[in-house]
Amino acid sequence: MGAPPPIVVGVVDRLERLTNLIALLLNAARPITLDEIVMSIEGYPKEPETRRQAFERDKRLLRDEGVPVETVHVDDGKAAYRISSDEYYLPPLDLSEDELVALNLAVAAVHLEGGRGSEALWSLGDAPAEALPPLAALPVIDALPALFDGCRRRAAVSFSYRGQTRTLEPWGMFFREGFWYVAGRDVDRSEERVFRADRIQGDVTVGPPAAFDRPETFDPQQVMPEQAFRMAMVEPTLVDVEVDAPHAAAATADAGGEEAVIDRRPDGGVTLRIAVANPDAFRSWIFGFLDHAHVVAPPAVRTRFVKWLETMAQ
C-alpha cells in the first residue's frame, strides 16, 4: 500500500457522518432527537438552522438509499428518529450458487439505461463474472424507483401528469412495447388507471407505508390491451380493416392475434375486426401501413378516413 491519503484534522467526511448516524440510530434504545444526535456524532454544523438543514439532507439521502429512518414525535412534540433493525437488514435470500450465477448473468445481459444493476449485486453474494453479449436494453426513467417503492410499501404516490397532480395507490408496474407503465387506483377519481411512467413530470412523492390493500387478483400483465388504439378513450367501435399480405402477420399481432382475423385471402392478405377505443391512435396505426391497408367498415369510420385523405389530396 502506498502513502495513506492525508487526513484533514477537524473535518469529518460526510460518509463517515452518515455511517455513524446509521450506527447510532440502529442501536438506540429509543427514538432520539437531533440534539441528542449531535452530542454523539461529530461533523454537524454548530449553528442550529444550518445543523437542522444538514441533518435533513442526511436523512433524505439515507431514505433514498433504502435506509428506513423513522420519525416519531416524543412527548414535548419534538421529532425523534430511529432505524428499526427489523426494517434495516437485508433478509436472507438463500440464493443457491446457480441462482446467484443466473442473477449475475441477467444483470450482464440486460442493459439498464443509466447503468443501474451491477451495484444491486453488491450485497447478494459472489458469483463468477462472465462477459456476455447484450440481449436486451430497458429504459430506466427517474420516476421508476419511487413508483416501485410505492408498490412494495403499499404507499400512495403523487406526481404531475400532463399538467395535473395525480395521487395513485400503485398496484403494479409493467414494461410493454418499449414503455414502463404503473397501474393502480387513482385516489381522486376513485378509478383504476394506467399511467405511462416516462410522461410523469418532475418528482414523485411517496406517502406513508401500508396505506392501502392491493386487490388480490391483480395481475399487471392483464391490465391493458397491447395496442394504444385499444386503450379506453371512448366506447369501443368495431372496425374492419383490410391489410395486404406483407403486413398481415404484424397487423394481426397488433390486433390481438388470430381471433381478430375475419377473412383470409388466397394471396395472404387479411381482414381484421378491431375494437377501437382510441380513434387517434388507430388512425396513426393504420397510416403506418401507407397504401397497404384500409378501413372497410363501418361506413361512418370509412367515410371519416376518406374525408381526411380527400382534404389532404387537394
Binding site: 433504502g66 437485508l90 448473468l105 445481459a109 430497458l138 419511487a146 416501485f148
Partner: peptide
C-alpha cells in the same frame, strides 16, 4: 461490531433494477 456484519436492504432503485433485469431475461 455485530450491527454492521449484515448488509442493509436493497434500495428501491437497486431492487427495481434487479427485478427488471431478471424479469426481462425471463421474458425472452
Amino acid at each position: 461490531p455485530e450491527y454492521f456484519r449484515r448488509p442493509p436492504r436493497l434500495s428501491a432503485a437497486d431492487g427495481f433494477a434487479l427485478l427488471a433485469a431478471g424479469k426481462a431475461l425471463l421474458a425472452v
